[in-house]
Write a protein that binds this DNA or RNA. Structure first.
Length: 284
DNA sequence: CGTTTTTGACCAGCGC
DNA sequence: GCGCTGGTCAAAAACG
């Protein structure tokens, strides 16, 4: 990938043709008004559009391509300031099953973008093959056979304005790698859920444009519930929201955050297959 | 002593 | 085909 990653979009995303993140400082860059962005794939956008009430005011942008960013006020959703993160969280959860919390007490902006949730649609459990292969996607060993394509799980990325890199999200993560990112002075950290049966991963990096912005990317679905938070907890709306979107025991706890809007069910469809016994987990 | 982080190396994918 | 970059592994170090 080399050059194609422009200066603006996080390299990581540029590498994935299907998605990219909003650029801080862009059209409606992070401000004290808590903007957030959804980046769906076309199909998703359509559905989304069809499901959103008209009274939404926030902007939603898609960043399929760095130079193709377009504002879609028509797709905007109504998350108020305090909800923004929850929205991001819940949205994130719907795809990947987890979300990152913000720096406590500090002001935080959240920008979310949805990567490949639909294209890989169905990435069911990790063992799906790419088609020709046949090997589990999550082969932990580096002995991946040649020609075996890495299977991407649904991913969800969002940006938070925070001074803290690793934000609390109710799950325990183990860092398994760190890499310098091209065009960015900040390294990217790779985390994996400590639950041995859970294949969820997350990447954390800072925006090269705005060091105060942390870009968090989740990949995969938790197959368990989080460790819980010492304080705070679900707010009904969040719970229902997350519960609806997150088939896999996602939990989001963030004091003071409320969620008023739900992401259209259509968005969760691609994940329905995940809905199994984990529902009961959510019920807890 | 068990768990997590650090870090260099390796491998795969992609663009040129 | 080559080179670059991202992603992951795994041994060693650090930490609690």
């Amino acid at each position: 990938m080399a050059d194609e990653e422009g200066v603006d979009p996080p390299t990581e995303f540029a590498s994935d043709s299907s998605w990219a993140l909003p650029v801080p400082g862009g059209p409606d860059s992070v401000s004290d008004t808590f903007n957030y962005f959804f980046d769906w794939e076309s199909a998703m956008l359509s559905e989304f559009q069809g499901n959103l009430p008209p009274d939404h005011t926030q902007e939603i942008e898609r960043f399929d391509q760095p130079d193709r960013t377009e504002t879609r006020p028509d797709l905007a959703g109504t998350f108020s300031v305090s909800e923004s993160f929850a929205g991001a969280a819940a949205a994130a959860s719907c795809v990947s099953g987890s979300v990152t919390s913000l720096n406590p007490g500090g002001s935080t902006d959240v920008l979310i973008s949805n990567p490949s949730m639909s294209s890989s649609s169905s990435e069911d459990p990790p063992e799906k093959s790419t088609g020709s292969g046949g090997k589990p996607s999550e082969i932990p060993s580096k002995v991946k056979k040649k020609g075996q394509k890495r299977i991407r799980q649904p991913r969800f990325a969002f940006m938070t304005k925070s001074e803290v890199d690793h934000l609390e999200d109710g799950y325990r993560w183990r860092k398994y790698g760190q890499k310098a990112v091209k065009n960015s002075p900040f390294p990217r950290s790779y985390y994996r859920c400590t639950n041995s049966k859970c294949t969820v991963k997350k990447r954390v990096e800072r925006s090269s444009d705005d060091s105060t912005i942390v870009i968090t990317t989740y990949e995969g679905q938790h197959c368990h519930h989080g460790v819980g938070f010492p304080r705070g907890g679900f707010i009904n709306h969040e719970a229902s929201f997350a519960g609806q979107l997150v088939p896999s025991g996602f939990q989001f706890h963030h004091p003071g955050i409320q969620l008023h809007r739900q992401i259209p069910p259509s968005i969760t469809q691609s994940n329905q297959e995940y809905v199994t016994d984990e529902n009961e987990t959510m019920a807890k």
